[in-house]
């Protein structure tokens, strides 16, 4: 992310201070044992440590759901808002405070259902924000209802005879939106890949959308079980401009070289064909960033008053 000068910034970060993982830890996470969110929390804290982001300059914004408890467990500023609406809040923060590092954490209900309009339009705005979709294919906090990403046939309390519709594919939906600038997928059970993907997302200039396949030990226990047990079901997208994790290359034999600049190829790879692909599907640093497009001059009170008087002159009797 690009730090910009900000009128509000009256005291800069402590240059000499070295931040450690512990500096980013807050209350003990209360997700279920075995929940994929724990690994994502650790990866995020590790990212902040690597990038040495001052906690006070960092904001985690979420909606409602299991995933949205995330900010409470980070020792940064946090905003735990309402269901589906994390992205507009994040735009409001970033638009007028581009000096802050803004992360959004959403579940699949948040992002792909109740907040779907914000998902599409935030891709268009392309603010310099990292958005994590923690996708476990189910509504967990409200106790097992069908989500847009539930696989067809998965039984839930609202669709006990199995999910009626085919699952929405967040990757192809995202890649179809004008101005999408960074689209990646990773899994909570591959910590090295997860961390590397978050790092790439953070370093991307623009809206970085990361779908994280996330296990729910309560309601979708078998959703990714096959891929967890059999690395052969996974295909890694590899490229110097993508995510490179050398230690994974021996374990994950299926690799496809994919240039993240190639949008057509990204869209093809995102189509469901039985393979789970992890890596950077698309990346374009050249797209305009909303808060830069909308940058406005900083005006002193005296300047504002002078301009206001000129404007009042236009209405003078």
């Amino acid at each position: 992310m690009i730090d910009q000068a900000c009128s509000l910034l009256s005291c800069g970060p402590d240059e000499d201070r070295e931040w450690t993982m512990a500096d980013y830890e807050s209350a003990a996470a209360r997700w279920c044992p075995g929940c994929g969110d724990h690994a994502i929390l650790t990866a995020a804290q590790r990212l902040l440590e690597t990038e040495q982001l001052p906690p006070e300059q960092t904001v985690f914004i979420s909606g409602i759901g299991c995933a949205s408890r995330f900010p409470h467990y980070m020792n940064t500023y946090g905003f735990h808002g309402i269901h589906g609406r994390a992205l507009p809040v994040a735009i409001g923060v970033k638009l007028r405070r581009p000096d802050l590092h803004v992360f959004v954490v959403m579940g699949d209900g948040d992002c792909c259902s109740i907040g779907a309009a914000h998902w599409i339009h935030t891709l268009r705005y392309n603010p310099d924000i990292v958005a994590l979709l923690l996708d476990n294919g189910v509504y967990g906090l409200t106790k097992n209802q069908t989500s847009p990403t539930s696989p067809k046939g998965k039984a839930s309390n609202t669709q006990p005879r199995g999910a009626l519709l085919p699952a929405l594919n967040p990757l192809s939906a995202t890649l179809g939106v004008t101005n999408a600038s960074f689209v990646a997928q990773t899994g909570d059970w591959v910590p090295a890949h997860l961390y590397a993907t978050l790092l790439a997302a953070y370093r991307h200039r623009g809206f970085a959308f990361v779908r994280i396949l996330q296990r729910c030990p309560q309601y979708t226990t078998d959703l990714f079980e096959g891929a967890v047990r059999d690395p052969g079901l996974i295909e890694l997208l590899v490229h110097p401009d993508g995510v490179a994790v050398s230690e994974l290359e021996r374990l994950y034999k299926n690799q496809v070289r994919h240039d993240p600049a190639d949008l057509d190829a990204a869209r093809r790879l995102a189509e469901p064909d039985g393979k789970i692909r992890l890596g950077v599907f698309y990346r374009n640093d050249a797209l305009p960033v909303y808060e830069e497009t909308r940058a406005v001059p900083t005006r002193s009170h005296a300047e504002k008053l002078a301009l206001l008087n000129t404007e009042l002159d236009r209405h003078a009797v």
Partner: peptide, 28 residues
Amino acid sequence: ERFGGLVHQAEDEIAAAGVAVGASFAGK
């Protein structure tokens, strides 16, 4: 914009409220 302010046309009424809340949370 001449005054250092800006109008954000949001994607819907809800988002407009959210953007205002977010900016205010951030001290604007």
